[in-house]
Write a protein that binds this DNA or RNA. Structure first.
Length: 216
DNA sequence: TTGCCGATCTTCT
DNA sequence: GAAGATCGGCAAA
C-alpha cells in the first residue's frame, strides 16, 4: 500500500480536508499498529482565520504549521487532551487540517485498551461501542497513542511511525463517501465558516457542539 | 436527547 | 491571569 504523496498537502487546507475523508491514518508503536479511516476533518487557515492557532503568527507551539506540508502538528489542550493536524501549503504559509474522527480499521483491540478507562467493573469487558473509539479529535489521539512526541513527524514517510494512506479508490468511485459540510466544532471565532467536512451519515462522526465560554 | 459541569494545565496576553 | 480546535458524567426535560 502506498502513502499519500507530499504534493497532496501542498494546497489550501479547505481543499485538502474533504479529500482526506476515507484516507487512512496509522500509527505504529512497540505495542502494535492502529489505523483509522478518517470520517471527519476540519480546515484551518492562518492570518485570515481567527480560529486558527497561527492567526497571531508563529509561536513555540504552532511552529510546525509554518513548516513544509505533510507533517503532523500535535497540540495539547484543555489541560488533558491532544489533537492532530496535517500541515498544508509550502513552508512559511501556516495551514492545517484537524483530524477529528475516524473508524478503526486495524488494531481495534489495542485501541480499545488505550481507551480502557471505559470498562464495566464487573466483567472487565470494554463496554465502549466500536464507533466511539476514535469519535472526536482527542479520542482519535487516544486510540492511536498520539501525543507531544509525534509533533512534527512526517506522515509521508514509509519509515515513519505515523503514516497517511490514500482512500480506497473504490470507496470514492462508487459514491460510498458522500461529503457533508458545515461549521467547525467548538470554536468561538469564525464559527460560521463551513470548513468542517464529514462522511454523511457515518456513526463515527462526532456530535456538533457549539463553543461554550467557561466562567471561572 | 440536550445541556451543564468539572477536570486539568499549557499557552499567550 | 484567562481562555481553550475536549471529554465524560450526571441531571433535567
Amino acid at each position: 500500500m502506498d502513502l499519500i504523496p507530499r504534493e497532496f498537502f501542498d494546497r489550501p487546507s479547505q481543499e485538502v480536508a474533504p479529500d482526506l475523508l476515507g484516507c487512512v491514518l496509522e500509527h505504529e508503536t512497540a505495542e502494535g499498529l492502529v489505523a483509522v479511516e478518517l470520517t471527519e476533518v476540519e480546515a484551518y487557515a492562518g492570518e485570515t482565520d481567527p480560529a486558527s492557532h497561527s492567526y497571531r503568527g508563529r509561536t513555540a507551539r504552532n511552529g510546525v504549521m509554518f513548516g513544509p506540508p505533510g507533517y503532523a502538528y500535535v497540540y495539547f489542550t484543555y489541560g488533558m487532551h491532544f489533537c492532530v493536524n496535517v500541515v498544508c501549503m509550502p513552508a512559511g504559509i501556516p495551514r492545517a487540517v484537524l483530524l477529528r474522527a475516524g473508524r478503526v480499521t486495524a488494531g481495534e483491540d489495542l485501541a480499545r485498551r488505550r481507551r480502557a478507562r471505559w470498562r464495566s467493573e464487573a466483567s472487565q469487558e470494554s463496554i465502549l461501542p466500536a464507533r466511539d473509539l476514535a469519535r472526536g479529535p482527542a479520542r482519535l489521539c487516544q486510540a492511536l497513542a498520539i501525543d507531544r512526541t509525534q509533533n512534527g513527524l512526517d506522515v509521508c514517510s514509509a519509515d515513519g511511525e505515523l503514516r497517511l494512506r490514500p482512500a480506497d479508490p473504490g470507496l470514492r468511485a462508487n459514491g460510498a463517501i458522500e461529503v457533508a459540510v458545515g461549521p467547525r466544532v467548538g470554536v468561538s471565532a469564525a464559527a460560521d465558516v463551513p470548513w468542517r467536512f464529514w462522511v454523511a451519515g457515518d456513526p463515527t462522526v462526532s456530535a456538533y457542539r457549539l463553543h461554550k465560554a467557561r466562567v471561572r
